[in-house]
Structures are given as C-alpha cells and as structure tokens.
C-alpha cells in the first residue's frame, strides 16, 4: 500500500515536471493526463474511491479531452523561447524554489510525520450523496447554474461571427 503511494508520487512528480518542461503542448497534455490518473490512484489509496473514479471520468476523460481537442484544432506547435521568457526563468525559478521550501517548512512543522489517520470511514457514493443533498444542497444547485452559464458562454464565445 505505502510503496504504491511512493511509486505513484514519484512518477506523478516526474510527469508534472514533463508538463512544464515539454515545449510541445500535446506532450504536456499527455503528461498531465498521466498525473491525473496517478492522483486518482492516490485518492484510492487514501480511501476516496468515488472521487477517484470521478477524477478519471471528469478530469482525465472529459476536461483533458477538451484540451487535447483545442491543441489539435489550433495546431499548437513547439513554442519558441523569447527574451522575456528567459527573464522569467532567471527570476521565476529561484522565487518558485523559495516558495516551495517555505511551504514545505510550514507543512513539516505543522504536521509532524507521526500524525495518525482517522479510523476508516464510509466514503462510498451513498455517503457522498447523503452529504451532498443534505448539507451542500445550495452549493450543488449554484454549481449546476454555473455549469449552465459556462455552456452558454462557451457556445457564444466559440461561435463564428457571421
């Protein structure tokens, strides 16, 4: 169990690095899909089986398909480095590493590695459904309106002007 987590974690970090370092967007997208699937495995290990499956269906299977579609539709090729992107590299990378160390320091201080997990609990679809339709009805309805607005917006934006 634990060893599977560390394997998934290591591969997902490598794949995430590949998302950022690849210059061809299709490869970035494929690496990101790999990261999403590995995260789903980690969710499974953490006992969130419903969310794990939703992650694969919605994130890897629907959202990323949109990305891949758009990349192919616009025929996005390799990106060419420019003057300012070099500036971003020399300034950005140290800043980002500083940020990483800072947050890691906070995390390790706040949660020493002895923190024990809570007892196993039911995270099946039924339990999630109960919570969703009892305690979170309003957010649920609001998100459904949001989705509707997003659909309309996407159609209006992507429509060709006549």
């Amino acid at each position: 169990m634990e060893i599977l987590f560390y394997i998934c974690a290591a591969v997902s970090v490598l794949a995430a690095l590949n998302v950022v370092l690849q210059r061809t967007p299709v490869y970035s997208a494929l690496s990101l899909i790999l990261v999403l699937c590995l995260l789903a495995v980690i969710y499974l290990l953490l006992g969130a089986e419903f969310i794990a499956v939703i992650q694969v269906i919605v994130y890897a299977g629907a959202i990323m398909v949109l990305f891949v579609f758009v990349i192919m539709l616009l025929n996005a090729g390799r990106e060419v480095p420019s003057e300012r992107s070099r500036l971003a590299r020399w300034l950005g990378v140290p800043l980002v590493i500083a940020f990483l160390l800072e947050v890691l320091w906070a995390v390790w201080n706040q949660f020493p590695s002895g923190t024990a997990p809570a007892a196993d609990f039911d995270a099946g679809p039924a339990a999630i459904g109960h919570l969703l339709f009892r305690n979170y009805v309003l957010p649920f309805e609001v998100t459904s309106v949001l989705i509707l607005v997003a659909i309309l917006g996407a159609v209006v934006l992507a429509k060709k002007e006549e």
Binding site: I33, V56, I57, G61, A62, V65, V68, G124
Partner: peptide, 20 residues
C-alpha cells in the same frame, strides 16, 4: 464497489486512443 463507474472511467479514456 464502484464497478460500473470504473467501466465508465475506462471507456472515457478510450477517446484518447482514437484522437491520438
């Protein structure tokens, strides 16, 4: 215990093989 969703998850990834 989410077997049906698992199958849907796997089929939803099948789109990639075709588009790629």
């Amino acid at each position: 215990n989410v077997g049906l969703l698992f199958i849907f998850a796997v089929t939803s990834l099948g789109v990639y093989s075709i588009v790629l």
